[in-house]
Amino acid sequence: MAVTLNQEKTNPSVQTAPTPRGFSVLWTIVRYALLLALGLLFFMPFIISFFSTFKTTNEILSWPPTILPKEWLWDNWAAAWNTRIPGVSSNIFPRWLFNSLWVAVVTVIAQLFFCSLAAYAFARMEFPGKNVLFSIMLASMAIPGVITLIPGYVFFAKLNNLPFGIRLGINTYWPILLPNLAVPFGIFLLTQFFKSIPKELEEAATIDGAGRFRTYWSIVLPMARPALITLGILSFQGSWNNFTGPLLFLRKPDLMTLTVGLNFFKGQYVNDWPKIMIGTMFNAIPILIIFFIFSRYYVEGQAAAGVKG
């Protein structure tokens, strides 16, 4: 099955069995109502949390809870933005946001480059060992991450005492960045896409004397834009939402990314509900905005994930 990324799949007309007209109209209404209700249900937790950011802790803990605040405390957001905690020299939430952002951006750039390089080799080049490597790569996606948790920690703990004072271990960003430079899912996604691009243009370029890298860089990559965007937003989301890695390796508050920072903040200030929920919104809102802008690519990425089965 080919991965179609650039056009919306048209639905093969599902013919309904002849049913009485009245029933069919009723069923349509019921279905739309049901879908709307479900959509609202899936969104409700976000709406409730968003409004709770304008409440006091007392109001959040009082019974019965109401969706809208009794009194709107607009200042809560500014107060959260300016929150300081001991041991960190700047406002804590902007700092965690910044850490999350740059880790995500570096991850996206690295994955787009390294995954597409590998994918180009798998899709277009002939070399011994190709099929074996590709199969091993696919199989490695099924290795449970929990297996590399302990050795990962032990391994990186040792990398803090390298010569010349080089530190690559705990409380640096290397343990989070290095293992994610090139990931099997990304290579697989791009390989499938590259295979679906017609070869003629590349052949013309080769005749003109372009080397492999030039062909990859200036012919294939530009044509793969939709697939690259899909991989880009999925890897941004993966990094932005990552919790286990940063939790294990970033043990100082000023180094934490937002997900881990939030968990740390919650542990320290159990009852500061408005700030906890505002921090949660700092994590949720950017990714939701990205989702709504690029939703088409998300859906296609999910469909592509389904192809590998």
Binding site: P45, F243, L262, M277, T280, L288
Partner: peptide, 23 residues
Amino acid sequence: FRTIFYAPSVASSVVISMIFLLL
């Protein structure tokens, strides 16, 4: 509808956990 249904899935496990702690 597809967009609306899928949107909550893009939030991180930490976001979902915090929200449900509240709920």
